[in-house]
């Protein structure tokens, strides 16, 4: 049986890689990709959590939560990508640092 701490380590490192991706990359697409990574890390934990839940009967809450996160990811990506298209149409580049008109 896989000790939970390993899974913790795995999801945690996946999450950190995702964060690095968000912070380091200046291309909007890559930010979305690393966002996906972070989502996967979280889902991993949910599933592991429900699997190791100390109750007598089998617990499937993790998987239900997975379904919800799945729909979330899907809708989020749909909107994200349409924004990317929109941005590309308007600015012809995807560099996020150039989008700072909201400041003044």
């Amino acid at each position: 049986m896989i000790p939970l701490s390993w899974i913790f380590f795995l999801s945690l490192s996946l999450f950190t890689i995702g964060i690095f991706g968000v912070l380091a990359r200046r291309n909007l697409l890559f930010i979305l990709i690393s966002l996906e990574l972070m989502l996967n890390a979280v889902v991993l934990l949910f599933i592991a959590g429900s699997r190791y839940h100390p109750t007598s009967i089998a617990n499937s809450d993790g998987q239900i939560m997975y379904i919800l996160i799945l729909t979330l990811a899907a809708s989020e990506i749909a909107i994200g990508l349409s924004l990317v298209i929109h941005m590309y149409r308007q600015h012809h580049h995807l560099d996020i640092d150039k989008l700072n008109q909201l400041r003044d």
């Binding site: 968000v22 912070l23 996020i96 640092d97 989008l99 700072n100 003044d104």
Partner: peptide, 14 residues
């Protein structure tokens, strides 16, 4: 600090 760059906001979050 309000310089409009998203990455700065993310960084401050982290």
């Amino acid at each position: 600090f309000q310089n409009g760059k998203l990455r700065c906001y993310n960084a401050s979050l982290i």
